[in-house]
């Protein structure tokens, strides 16, 4: 009859090792993908991109830099694009203030 604690230690060792392996793999993969990341950086540089292509339908998500100042649900370039939040959480103060001396 094996002690239950022995079984649990065996289980724990296995999962700790597995997690260690996963983190190790993550590390290796980050290193392996550096060339691609560098390539992405090059793409951003040459095409002068400002945004990720995550949601192609919401233009203020695809291109937050391209938002209108006074359109529905989109009051600021840095405002959140989900309906209630945009009206509850203001965009950063400096964005609202603008940069010019005429700003209040």
């Amino acid at each position: 009859m094996v002690r239950k604690s022995t079984l649990f230690f065996a289980f724990l060792t296995t999962v700790v090792l597995a997690l260690g392996l996963a983190l190790g793999e993550a590390r290796l993969r980050v290193r392996g993908e550096l060339p691609y990341l560098r390539q992405e950086v090059m793409v951003v540089k040459t095409l002068q991109l400002t945004d990720l292509c995550l949601a192609t339908e919401a233009r203020h998500t695809r291109h937050p830099s391209q938002a209108d100042w006074h359109s529905a649900f989109q009051s600021h370039p840095a405002a959140l694009d989900h309906f209630p939040s945009g009206s509850i959480i203001p965009p950063p103060e400096n964005v609202r203030r603008g940069y010019g001396p005429q700003a209040p």
Binding site: V41, V44, T50, S65, Q66, W69, H70
Partner: peptide
């Protein structure tokens, strides 16, 4: 990844506004 990659994007973008719209 976004932070890493977009660090290479232009520092400033200037848009023109007409009557408050782009």
């Amino acid at each position: 990844e976004a932070a890493l990659v977009l660090a290479a994007s232009p520092e400033l973008i200037v848009q023109k506004l007409a009557a408050g719209r782009h």
